[in-house]
Simulated scan of single mutants.
Amino acid sequence: MKKLYLNIVSPEKEIYNGEIESVTLPGTIGTFTILPQHAPIVSSLREGKVIYVPEGGEEQTLDIEGGFVELSGGVVSACVD
């Protein structure tokens, strides 16, 4: 299985950067989950929770007010407020 990496940044700082098993995001038109080998995607994000599972770790939750996410080449890049 291919690897999936997540990088979450806010205007103030980097929040998370590392390998993950999955990430669930509050998309503008609905919540969606990204798993390894997901097709490339760009989406705006609404207020809600980002839920990610670090490789071999426990589920983590982050409350956001909105932002954008892009998945390209196995890297999920989220810019959040």
Rank of each mutant, 00 (worst) to 15 (best):
A39L: 13
M1T: 06
K2R: 10
G66C: 07
L71P: 01
E21T: 15
Q37M: 10
V42I: 15
V76P: 05
I41C: 04
G67N: 02
V50Y: 07
L4G: 05
E14P: 08
D81V: 11
V9M: 14
N7T: 13
E55K: 13
T31K: 13
V42K: 01
L45Q: 01
P26T: 08
V23C: 13
I15E: 11
I20G: 08
L4T: 13
V23M: 10
E70W: 02
L45D: 00
D63R: 08
G56Y: 13
S10Q: 06
Y5K: 08
G57D: 12
Y52E: 05
G67H: 03
V42P: 00
M1D: 05
V76E: 06
E65I: 11
F32G: 06
G18N: 10
F32P: 04
P11E: 14
S22D: 10
I29R: 09
D81M: 08
S44H: 07
G18K: 11
E59F: 11
E59D: 05
Y5F: 10
T28F: 06
G56W: 15
Q37T: 03
V75D: 13
G67Y: 02
Y52C: 03
G67D: 05
Q60E: 14
S10E: 07
S77K: 14
E14I: 14
A78T: 04
E58K: 14
T33H: 00
L25S: 01
P36M: 04
S44R: 13
N7V: 13
I20V: 11
E70S: 12
Y52V: 06
V75N: 15
V23T: 14
G56R: 04
L6A: 06
L62W: 08
Y5G: 03
L6N: 03
S77H: 11
C79N: 13
E14F: 02
Y52R: 07
G66D: 10
H38V: 00
V50H: 02
E19P: 05
L4D: 14
G30P: 03
S43L: 12
E70M: 07
D81R: 14
Y52M: 04
K3I: 07
G56D: 05
K49M: 08
P54G: 12
I20N: 09
D63S: 14
G30R: 09
L62T: 05
C79Y: 15
I41P: 03
F68G: 07
V76H: 04
I8F: 12
I34P: 02
F32V: 08
I64S: 09
E70I: 07
E21I: 02
E12R: 12
S72R: 13
E47I: 02
